[in-house]
Design a protein around this nucleic acid. Structure first.
Lengths: 130, 130
DNA sequence: GGTTGCCTACTACCGATGTCGTAGAACAAT
DNA sequence: ATTGTTCTACGACATCGGTAGTAGGCAACC
């Protein structure tokens, strides 16, 4: 656990999102999906991203027919967790609570989400009691 | 409103944190505070940071005696909010709830913090009822 | 009134990231 | 075989952020 925080840039993340959402894809497919999402980049740019991401160990590839097919090797959740941690460290010196409070105050949540949240907090309580 | 999110790097944020925490300071004071926090950088490095931050419009300075005194022009909360928004957009397509749940699950909170959180959620309820 | 010390301005350099172009392999179509 | 398409490999270049050195101004000190 606790692997070093692989830094992913904004464009690299966009590529990861495509892989997370639409499974293993070729370079060309990734490019197409990026275009569909409004991010117009050249084929070789996407290739560069995927190559770099593979070097960072966050995607893997295997050849199918003529082209390589790439897939994510890390989960969206793990990236999310690490980004949150970074944010908390960089803005609140590691104290998650103020960040959490801010998040709740700034973003809008539906009633269902609030209910879900409340349940989660109850779970937290019992976890702490043990 | 909604100025584009001024990008601040990790070291720049460390400088901002010092200014947020300890009010208007000279370059030398900022450097000292950074050293106290374990971030050992040269005087001119701090000067560079402050100059760049001023160019980005996030700090302001005025001369007092011989040296300039710098102060933050944006709040920690505004940076935090914008960072959170970016994160939520980039990882969860703008849905804050999954992110919030993840934050709660991954970070540890004290009983007091949980209580505070619960109170905040009750406030959310009443806000939604209106 | 030269030396010491602090301050700002300017310049530089490196690594990471975003972005492509070109070259060459492999295969398909003519 | 020649032409064309599609891939990968490799290199290039700009920008930004982190880090710092050097130069020149001014005040204080001895």
């Amino acid at each position: 656990m606790a692997k070093r925080p692989v830094e992913l840039g904004e464009a690299e993340l966009a590529v990861m999102r495509v892989l997370w959402d639409e499974g293993p894809l070729t370079v060309r497919d990734v490019m197409t999906r990026l275009h569909e999402r409004g991010r117009v980049v050249a084929y070789t740019t996407v290739l560069t991203f995927l190559t770099r991401l593979e070097q960072k160990g966050v995607v893997a590839s295997n050849k199918r027919d003529t082209a390589y097919v790439y897939r994510a090797r890390i989960t969206r959740q793990s990236v999310s967790a690490s980004r949150i941690r970074t944010l908390v460290d960089q803005l609140y010196d590691g104290a998650a609570a103020p960040m959490l409070l801010q998040l709740i105050e700034n973003e809008r949540f539906s009633l269902e989400e609030i209910a879900q949240l409340r349940k989660l907090i109850d779970d937290l309580d019992s976890r702490n009691e043990s």
